[in-house]
Design a protein around this nucleic acid. Structure first.
Length: 492
RNA sequence: GGGCCGGUGGCGAAGUGGCUAACGCGCGGGUCUGCAAAACCUGUAUUCGCGGGUUCAAUUCCCGCCCGGCCCUCCA
């Protein structure tokens, strides 16, 4: 069974398979590192992460390349304002981006490439286009792509630009472009701007040429899949297609995946709306990294996701249910043997889980069988109809689930700890939720000691004292769960 | 103006031309527990934005309308 993934280019659900029959060659547009990434950025990266993890789980090999755009207008502007070179300016945000990826459990692509390290290759591509007449130089030293050279322009975004007359609704700007829609391949430097001295003149690359160049450099002239946020479809991806296909006369990417934007409280997220959040903001408010991940993943990638704090709370609680069940399986004692009904339930959950993801990565649908299995398992355990063989079968399903969703394995405490460290270093402690600070005052060892103390009090039937300890822990965000053979605790 | 997506219970959300409309969260009742928590049982949409049409049968297909959102410029 193979994944049928919606293909923007064909408008259909096409099977996603490597053309060479070996490894899927995929390219994903990465971040422009002029600031911290926000949850909108990360929804896209997270959904692409779901794709790559699912492909790997399905046994496919992949070669996944992601770029980092470390030179662009905003970067140049901000670095000039800060009075530092662009490399120095972007370094901090590149580092932050990797930290955020790790915090959210986004796997590293096989290859991460940076625009500023591929200038010569970009220049070569511009030269190739120029040689065929598809690129031209203007008086200021910039280079443009001649849209007329690529009649198929608009095939991805399904735009018919032929009726669009130059000068009607589009500015014919200060550069002497032949046609208003022609886009920049290479930009001549303005005074004080970072630039490279190259065979096509001094300047810096346009955004679109970066991706074309790096994608083809590492994956060849024809890719299996190209992915990115929906906004990139036009003009960015359309321009990539125009440049690449004009240069190679080959299909640039057979399959295009676009992740839908998210809203925040029903509105487009923006700084001016005051509804702009980074993962760091949410961590400092006390939300767990796993909850952010699940919330951003649980609504399928082609559907608009409305982010709210309720959605994070819901995700937190859902994860708690999964983790509680998981630890009940791992720590519980069961008799040897198996229950055939449980075995079947595990098998069915596994199949349904895979089938849902094979259906255009339907993450919402994929969660259902897992939760069904949780209930069936809990019920069987409660009734004493649960055995070691069942535990093993179910743990395997949960492992596969987590290979894609990655929320049961609990790294939340360390991620939060790092966020707090960052807040300290950058003077943002005032933004940190008070409960979060309170929770940090207790080490795991201190909690263990209190739990032991409480158990002793309970055994002595000193319930007042036991409850006092439980309340104290509760105030610091630690919840206690008594079970037959043990006491579990967790940080809320 | 042009292109496009969505409107399913208190919230999020899956889904299908006819099977009891998944799953998660929340809330009510119960079981268990010293009390909790967890877990389980149970109740929470006779109904899928509104109006019309096609059909033996529509939430699912078609048309119109209303509402929300996105793109057409930098943006994940």
């Amino acid at each position: 069974m193979t994944l049928r993934l919606f293909n923007t280019l064909t408008g259909q659900f096409d099977p996603l398979e490597p053309a060479d029959g070996i490894a899927l060659r995929m390219y994903a547009c990465g971040p422009t590192v002029y600031d911290y990434g926000h949850i909108g950025n990360f929804r896209t990266f997270l959904q692409i992460d779901v794709l790559r993890r699912f492909l790997l789980l399905s046994g496919m090999q992949i070669r996944h390349v992601m770029n980092i755009t470390d030179v662009d207008d905003k970067i140049i502007r901000n670095s000039i304002e800060a009075g530092i070179p662009i490399g120095e300016y972007t370094a901090g945000y590149v580092k932050a981006f990797f930290e955020d990826m790790e915090a959210l459990g986004i796997e590293r692509p096989e290859q991460i490439v940076r625009a500023t390290e591929h200038i010569p290759q970009m220049v070569k591509l511009v030269e190739k286009l120029a040689a065929s007449g598809a690129a031209y130089r203007t008086d200021d030293g910039s280079w443009y792509f001649r849209l007329k050279a690529f009649p198929e322009y608009g095939k991805l975004s399904k735009k018919d630009l032929s009726g669009m007359e130059d000068g009607a609704r589009v500015d014919v700007d200060e550069y002497e472009k032949d046609s208003a829609r022609d886009f920049a391949l290479w930009k001549a430097p303005k005074p004080g701007e970072t630039s490279w001295d190259t065979a096509i003149g001094r300047g810096r690359p346009g955004w679109h040429i970066e991706c074309s160049t790096m994608a083809m450099e590492y994956l060849g002239e024809s890719l299996d899949l190209h992915a990115g946020g929906e906004d990139l479809m036009f003009p960015h991806h359309e321009n990539e297609i125009a440049q690449s296909e004009t240069a190679t006369q080959k299909t640039f990417a057979r399959h295009w995946m676009h992740v839908r934007f998210l809203l925040v409280d029903g509105r487009k997220m923006s700084k001016s709306e005051g509804n702009f959040y980074t993962p760091r903001d949410l961590l400092l408010k006390g939300y767990k990294a796993s909850a952010i991940r699940l919330a951003l993943i649980a609504v399928p990638y082609r559907r608009q996701f409305n982010f709210t704090f309720d959605s994070l709370t819901d995700a937190t609680n859902a994860i708690d249910r999964l983790r509680t069940f998981h630890s009940r399986l791992s720590s519980g004692r069961f008799a040897t043997g198996e229950n055939s009904a449980m075995q079947e339930a595990a098998k069915k959950a596994q199949e349904d889980f895979m089938a849902a993801l094979n259906d255009d990565l339907n993450t919402a649908d994929a969660l259902a069988p897992v939760f069904d299995l949780v209930r069936a398992g809990n019920t069987a355990i409660d009734q004493g109809q649960f055995f070691t063989g069942d535990r093993d079968a179910i743990l395997q399903v949960l492992e596969d689930f987590d290979a894609v969703f990655d929320v049961i394995k609990d790294r939340d405490a360390e991620v939060t700890k790092r966020a707090l460290k960052w807040a300290t270093e950058t003077g943002r402690m005032a933004e940190v939720a008070v409960e979060l600070v309170a929770a940090q005052t207790l080490t795991d060892e201190a909690i263990e000691a209190l739990v032991v103390e409480r158990s002793a009090a309970k055994k002595a039937r000193d319930f007042a004292r036991a409850d006092r300890i439980r309340n104290e822990l509760q105030e610091k965000g630690v919840v206690i769960e008594d079970s037959k053979d043990s006491v579990r605790w967790k940080r809320k």
